[in-house]
Design a protein around this nucleic acid. Sequence first.
DNA 1: TTTAGGG
DNA 2: CCCTAAA
Length: 689
Amino acid sequence: MGFEKRLDYGFNAFSVSNVPRAPRSIRRRDRTKRTVDDNQFCAFELLASLAGKLLEESESSAASNVSEGNDHVYIGKDVVKQEIEYDDKPLKSECVEHVSCKESVVASDWTTENSDSLKEFKHSENNAKMQSAYSQQTKGDLKSAICKHNVAYGSFPGDLDGFSPNFGELCDGICDNGVKREREAKGLESGSFVVANNCPLKDQLHLSMTFPASVNSVRDVKLASRSDSVPNASFSRHRNNVKLGSRDDEEKFSRFNKLSNRFKASRPPIRIEDQRRKLLTSKYWKAAPKLKDFEHFRADGGIKPLLRKRKAYYNYDKCQHDTLYKRRKLFDHSSIVTYDGGIGSGSVSNSPEKVKNENKSSSVTMSHEACEISSLLKGHQASHKSSDSHVKLSIKSFRIPELYIEVPESATVGSLKRTVMEAVTALLGGRIRVGVLFQGKKVRDDSRTLSQSGISSDNNLDALGFTLEPGPAIAPPPLYSEEHTLLLPCGAAPQNLTSSLTTVNPPLLTNSAKAMDSTYKQTSSQTDILTDQKISESRALVPAPAMNVEALSVVPANQKIRKSELARRRTRRPFSVSEVEALVQAVEELGTGRWRDVKLRAFENADHRTYVDLKDKWKTLVHTAKISPQQRRGEPVPQKLLDRVMTAHAYWSQHQAKQQVKHHTGTLRITDSQGDRNGVAVAISTVSM
DNA sequence: TTTAGGG
DNA sequence: CCCTAAA
């Protein structure tokens, strides 16, 4: 009966490919060895032929900068050691690191960096500089050479598995010593970054030919553009940071990784997205700022090129995981330094006596938007002539909150100053407003008088605090919805305030509404760092005198941030009609219980479509088909397709039911005669046909 | 890792 | 899309 029904549904054409599937282990094997062999030679050859050239160019470009000349030598040494130590370090990881590190370098504009304990970071930095040098000096021959590098580079990450057995040897063969090898790595990375701008199209094509998909990192564009930005312009850095932290970027990053994975020979693609999710799910970002952690990362996150066992995969996964992780960390790092970074001990002090001058000088360097602070300070100055009924406060200093800064030990004092200056400038340049805390609570009502608020000279003014907060920019809704702050308009000085005043500052976020997205991240990561870093330590940086209520109020806020971060989704990517078509087609042929196969058949090259996605889409398609056209939304799916969806859905659910019935047939037959529950069950499955 | 389903 | 129990 079921069979006839099936005919009714017009499924004659369906190839009943519900053949028992081979064990996964076998199925998996089917998909292997596809890309590697073909590409192997190519990549090796490129690598080999370019190694020398690359080396030269690396040297020349690095040496072009005098200040970097020394670094180069020095770092070269370090790096060699490191390379040896972490021989199995995944190259891909490297690349990503440098991406991130570059951010921090550009952001802080450090000029020197040499420290054994900061090997890794420094190393990266240097690379970043080299990249910079590359991008600026790349011309003529170098250009094409770099492009080729990119080709070689492209082959690395993807072939870690398939290639890896030879990878180490390859490197050893090409590079006589660690230095060369390292430089080569640098070159590869540099090339990959520069390529986006300079590489002729044909090179890109070459890439595409060599590898299944567009190997060129999607991040290239942004990186390239970044190197265009003026290193000294803090605001441009802002922009870059925002960009870096943008969802899109993240998304692309993921894709970048996945792309790489696709070249793996003996295992299905890694779902980086999933890993990301796991990361996001993890309670806290392990944003430990200690640079030593980088080394740690190195040590345990590496991949043994020669390993092919499952374990190796695990390592690789972990590595990838960590890579992502690390990128995150680095990103965080750089953003912190750039964004609201400052140095804790360097509080922005405005003693009453100096207020005027400070204002003066401030107004030079600060944007007009900082007038709120100026106003506050002026008012404060005016407080000297306070009378009895006046609350007397003395703002000794405004501390910049949640300060966290990280510079290599080898950084010069000058660069440190610059870094701090830039951070502070960026901070003050934004819209800042002042919040008033009293007895641990925000004083929300701006219209209330001080006495109404309980703020009087009689009271313990230690309970009064001010906070610096992000300005009127579109405040992050969940985070600051409760933050009621007192925005002091220019010239509208607060009541005369004298007397000692404790100031505590909540996280001062950024000024730009546009930057909100990244702001979240930065804030959260920032707090994570502090969290992970032992409160005591962070307190040293952010001395929050007397009233630590602020810290309390910060906690929930950050949880909100974290929440928002956790909640982050992939960018939505509505299925196009053609995708639906492909999906329907595949499901018609494969059924509804083989999403992995569906994925492989119809979406193998769609990295962003997981089998879960496909399954979900099918689910919604079925639903869509069931509802009236008026209720449907989004890009309309052709009714014809929906019909097919219904048909296929009906068929396969029936099929499934039939299978189940079959499966239980023996049991059912036996009990059927009894006409009880089992009989009912049979009837149901029949009905559903 | 995949499947299956609820959220 | 996300999350996750189960397989």
